[in-house]
């Protein structure tokens, strides 16, 4: 255990340092997310005004605001840049430097990201949660915060992150075939945003589509934790959804390993 720590802690430190060095970029993305939430807030407000009733497809306006901000935050928390990182390293060949080190490839990426993830929890998740709880208190006149839900949410976010990391690892290997990583990244993000319910709650989608999407890995990457936080799931359903997350984490782990084995062969063809 100690040896593992010694090996991977430097990667984690590097992750924190990178985030601090590029803090303005990080800040820019946070503000970008905030602007997006503001636009969507007004759009939803117009929707609720036009719809007339208190509730729209089972969500009150207050719930919708919580969903909007928390889904966005969760997406940021579980967002993994590993697909871009690995793509760049494959392109410029520096991945060979990573491969000759006595560390496991994916673990070194993972620890680099964990450093950044820790920072995100501090500067993003905590302020957003506090803000939302104050908002809910003002709107509803009672404290809605449930510590148990928050803990389960956090557990679910960790699982979501593991799935997201593995999915992005798989996408990263596409760099072998695609040169336009920038365009590809936009494609990937918009697909994930839609399928994971961070754009629009899956509960709003037609029944067949919703059922399918709820079982796909994308819902596990954003929708599940938010619904748990909001207390939309019963105890049984919460356990069931967490189970699905664990299954997907295991499956994506296997798939990314398999692709990597195949990709290494391709890499030697390129000559590194």
């Amino acid at each position: 255990m100690n040896r593992i720590g010694k090996r991977y802690v430097p990667f984690m430190k590097a992750g924190v340092q990178t985030l601090i060095a590029y803090r303005l970029n990080f800040f820019g993305f946070v503000i970008g997310g905030l602007i997006y939430c503001i636009v969507m807030f007004y759009l939803w407000k117009a929707v609720y005004d036009s719809a007339g009733g208190d509730s729209f497809l089972g969500f009150t306006m207050t719930e919708m605001v919580v969903y909007l901000f928390l889904a966005n935050t969760t997406t940021q928390l579980t967002y993994s840049t590993v697909s871009g990182d690995i793509g760049d390293e494959i392109k410029d060949g520096s991945i060979s430097m990573r491969m000759i080190k006595p560390v496991d490839m994916d673990w070194s990426y993972l620890f680099t990201e964990l450093g950044a993830a820790f920072m995100k929890v501090v500067v993003l998740l905590i302020p957003v949660t506090v803000g939302l709880e104050i908002y809910r208190y003002c709107m509803l006149g009672e404290v809605m915060f449930r510590p148990l839900n928050f803990l389960l949410y956090f557990l679910s976010v960790i699982l979501a992150y593991i799935i997201s990391f593995r999915v992005n690892l798989c996408f990263g290997f596409v760099a072998f075939y695609v040169k336009n990583l920038w365009g590809f990244n936009i494609l990937k993000n918009s697909i994930i945003n839609f399928l994971s319910g961070s754009l629009i709650p899956l509960a709003f989608m037609p029944d067949v589509m919703r059922t399918i999407l709820e079982y796909m890995p994308f819902a596990s990457m954003g929708y599940t934790p938010v619904m748990i936080y909001m207390g939309k799931y019963s105890a049984y359903e919460t356990a069931f959804r967490l189970g699905i997350q664990i299954v997907w984490a295991a499956v994506m782990f296997g798939i990314s390993k398999l692709i990597w084995i195949g990709a290494v062969k391709k890499l030697s063809v390129q000559g590194g």
């Binding site: 075939y177 695609v178 040169k179 336009n180 920038w182 365009g183 590809f184 936009i186 494609l187 918009s190």
Partner: peptide
């Protein structure tokens, strides 16, 4: 392929 990826990405978006 690059061009297609880029254009299709913005289209899907």
């Amino acid at each position: 392929v690059d061009f297609l990826t880029g254009a299709v990405s913005f289209l899907i978006d």
